[in-house]
């Protein structure tokens, strides 16, 4: 038997062979039956999005607050640092200046030597 003839014969098994529009109606029936489950899935998907968003907001608000506090502290300490001497001092400048020997000795060996900030504050305070 020719392939074509066999295929034509087998097509008789297709319900749409003698019933035009069969598969469209069949699909509509399935979609009608599926409507409830599809609606349930849509609801669940919407709830999932809401849960994710509310989860984010719950964790983001404290984090944002903490970040704001830290930023404020950092900005404050920067401001304190920036309020120091306008012209940076270097050791060569100090040695070449008109500081008295006592002041220089104290600056180099005394308490002012404990940190750069203390040293600079001491030098600034004793500038002639």
């Amino acid at each position: 038997m020719e392939d074509e003839k066999r295929i034509r014969l087998l097509r008789v098994l297709d319900p749409a062979h003698d019933c035009p529009g069969y598969w469209e109606r069949f699909r509509t029936e399935i979609m009608d039956r599926a409507a409830f489950e599809l609606a349930r899935r849509r609801d669940r998907a919407r709830e999932s999005v809401e849960l994710v968003l509310s989860g984010w907001s719950r964790s983001l608000i404290p984090v944002a607050l903490a970040a704001a506090v830290i930023a404020a502290i950092m900005v404050g300490s920067e401001a304190v640092r920036d309020s120091g001497p306008g012209t940076p001092l270097v050791l060569e400048d100090v040695l070449a200046s008109d500081f008295s020997d006592e002041v220089l000795e104290t600056a180099i060996t005394g308490e002012a030597h404990s940190s750069s900030v203390a040293f600079m504050a001491f030098v600034e305070g004793n500038r002639p």
């Binding site: 699909r27 979609m31 599809l38 849509r42």
Partner: peptide, 12 residues
């Protein structure tokens, strides 16, 4: 999976 009816209809 998210309940998109047209997509399921296309699979059908």
């Amino acid at each position: 999976r998210s309940g998109h009816a047209e997509s399921f209809g296309e699979l059908v």
